[in-house]
Design a protein around this nucleic acid. Structure first.
Length: 559
RNA sequence: UGGCCUAUUGUGUAAUUGGUAGCACAGCGGAUUCUGGUUCCGUCAGUGAGGGUUCAAGUCCUUCUAGGCCAGCCA
């Protein structure tokens, strides 16, 4: 065969160039720097897979660094969830777990150095004044009066800021760069603010906290990060990033590289929007199976393998784009098809009575657990005179190309027998409540020697052996590809039917012992997992992770 | 009449750096199938627009168009 040509994404190209040029002595050190102020979502998963993947590929390492410089928004509770999500995805940062707050002392020293070099000053302007002085996108800013303070006075003021002599917001440490720069980030950006807020790690030790633009590049430099990969909105910050590293840093020069964040159809992705969904009660929490959070996908039944596969397939580039969520669903099906145990579950039961099958008789029939993987073995399932099949698998007056059960038609009951419909029983409203059939004893196992053609195959459960259970059907949270595109408010596009709770489902006996986190293919219906929150011993609740592809439904839609 | 960035089939991404525009998802058609699943085969469709350089341009130059980001003491 032809040798496969591996194409590199633009970041890999940069890294390989660097490697060739012996930059950083051949080291590749990346980092994933979440702020502990919320839960991780699939967009973060893209970044995690990228950063850890790069480290893996180039024999480097990837640091986990909590970017915890804003105690007002951050909380220790998020730290554990972030760790858990990254681990669950299958990545290991070993001992390389850091906190920006661990660098507060060093950062403070860097700030003093900047002051002593005449490259930072303490400003007493109010927030409103600062905004005015900054200028606009088209007009340059004005220099603050505080800009010309002496080094001695700046140092004194800054030390007193640290010592807590001033009220919150009274002073600000600013970099002295260029108030007329067309890049607003360079117009003397804030470095330190006064905030008397208890920090989740440093407690009340500090009343001044460093800003992102100061902290991030220097944290990267301190840790020896070689390639600092972030999203596109930080492109404008890159000159500032470099300024910090060149004027302040410990010598090491990390390189910031920006890529486009992930957008998914039928989904919102920003923390702000996800928080609103949680707060409004539209979803049950951050791990609601409809949420695009990593914990939501986990509870929904997505596997880490499928998410990593997805991250690999969507690629990395600089153009803003929206990935079709069908690709994610494909990745899940692809993974689960090979791994999920097949079982039979009737979600919307319709009773079937096999008139010529002996009353009281029970047979245990052999069923394969996964046709894609023989090593998963077989199991026995009970068959008897009274069964349930899916209500949609029977029609009294079927349309063309309907291969399922209908009067006079013969179908196969998976792993069991051929049955032919002989009649129906209706209630007073005309609804079919019972279907009567005869079976062919020679078709045991679902096969006959005579080569008879049976187009339809239904799943079923034995009425007296099945147990009743709850199944939750999930679909997209939003009804439009880009929620809020028309009205500007994503709440306008929330789908009403994103969750359907089915109570009277009839499940095959083996499912009784299913444990939280286990996943199955409910034959012909989809992939389901045991809900980790609402299941109890012997009473599993199932979440539909993703439905099977359904060409019959597609045919019907077309009419 | 601010700066930075981006543009390849419906979607997402490749193209040996100037040399046959490929892959995946979605769609459509068919074959196989004890899941209307899987698998297999086929098929549709693209370089935002206009100029220019060149034997040759997705790639270089130029003009335009469209989109994204930036005026927090958030990250």
């Amino acid at each position: 065969m032809s040798e496969e040509t591996v194409s590199l994404n633009f970041i890999e190209k940069i890294i390989e160039e660097d490697l060739k040029a012996k930059k950083n002595n051949g080291a590749v050190i990346t980092r994933f720097p979440p702020e502990p102020n919320g839960y991780l979502h699939i967009g973060h998963a893209k970044s995690i897979c990228l950063n850890f993947g790069l480290a893996e590929k180039y024999n480097g390492c990837c640091h986990l660094r909590f970017d915890d410089t804003n105690p007002e928004k951050e909380d220790i509770e998020y730290i554990d969830s972030i760790r858990e999500d990254i681990q669950w995805l299958g990545f290991d940062w070993g001992t390389n777990e850091f906190f920006a707050s661990d660098y507060f002392n060093k950062l403070y020293e860097f700030a003093e150095k900047l002051i002593m070099d005449g490259k930072a000053y303490v400003d007493g302007l109010s927030p409103e004044e600062i905004r005015k002085y900054r200028g606009t996108l088209t007009e340059p800013g004005k220099e603050s009066p505080g800009r010309n303070r002496s080094i001695e006075e700046n140092l004194d003021l800054f030390r007193r800021m640290k010592a807590g002599e001033f009220e919150d917001g009274k002073y600000l440490l600013r970099a002295k760069i260029d108030m007329s720069s067309p890049n607003l980030n360079m117009r003397d950006p804030a470095l330190y603010r006064i905030r008397r807020v208890t920090h989740h790690r440093t407690g009340d030790r500090w009343c001044i906290y460093p800003m992102y633009d100061f902290t991030h590049p220097l944290s990267d430099a301190i840790e020896g990060i070689t390639h600092s990969v972030c999203t596109l909105e930080f492109e404008d910050h890159r000159p500032l990033y470099n300024w910090m590293v060149e004027n302040t840093g410990p010598g090491h020069r990390p390189q910031q590289i920006e890529f486009a964040r992930l957008n998914l159809t039928y989904t919102v992705m920003s923390k702000r929007k996800l928080l609103k969904l949680v707060e409004s009660g539209i979803v049950s929490g951050w791990d609601d199976p409809r949420m695009p959070t990593i914990s939501g996908f986990r509870r929904r039944g997505y596997t880490p393998e499928s998410i990593r596969d997805f991250a690999g397939r969507i690629g990395v580039a600089k153009a803003n784009s929206t990935v079709d969520i069908a690709l994610l669903e494909h990745c899940l099906r692809d993974d689960l098809n090979k791994r999920a145990k097949r079982v039979m579950a009737v979600l919307d039961p319709l009773k079937v009575v096999i008139d010529n099958y002996p009353e009281g008789k029970v047979e245990y029939l052999e069923a394969e657990n996964n046709p894609e993987d023989e090593t998963m073995g077989n199991r026995k399932i009970p068959f008897s005179r009274e069964l349930y099949i899916e209500r949609e698998d029977f029609m009294e007056n079927p349309p063309k190309k309907y291969f399922r059960l209908s009067p006079g038609n013969e179908i196969r009951l998976k792993h069991a027998y051929y049955v032919t419909c002989t009649g129906v029983v209706k209630d007073e409203t005309g609804t079919v409540v019972e279907v009567h059939c005869t079976y062919d004893p020679d078709s045991k196992g679902g096969w006959t020697e005579d080569g008879r053609k049976v187009r339809g195959t239904s799943h079923w459960v034995s009425a007296s052996h099945a147990f009743e259970g709850e199944v939750r059907l999930y679909s997209h949270l939003f009804s439009t590809e880009v929620p809020g595109e028309k009205t500007g408010d994503f709440f306008d596009d929330i789908a009403e039917d994103s969750l359907t709770i089915l109570k009277g489902c009839m499940l095959e006996p083996s499912l009784k012992e299913a444990e939280p986190g286990e996943f199955f293919q409910f034959l012909r219906k989809g992939y389901f997992c045991v809900d980790s929150r609402d299941s109890s011993k012997g009473k599993p609740v199932f979440n539909r992770s993703v439905a099977m592809r359904d060409t019959w439904a597609k045919l019907q839609k077309k009419g």
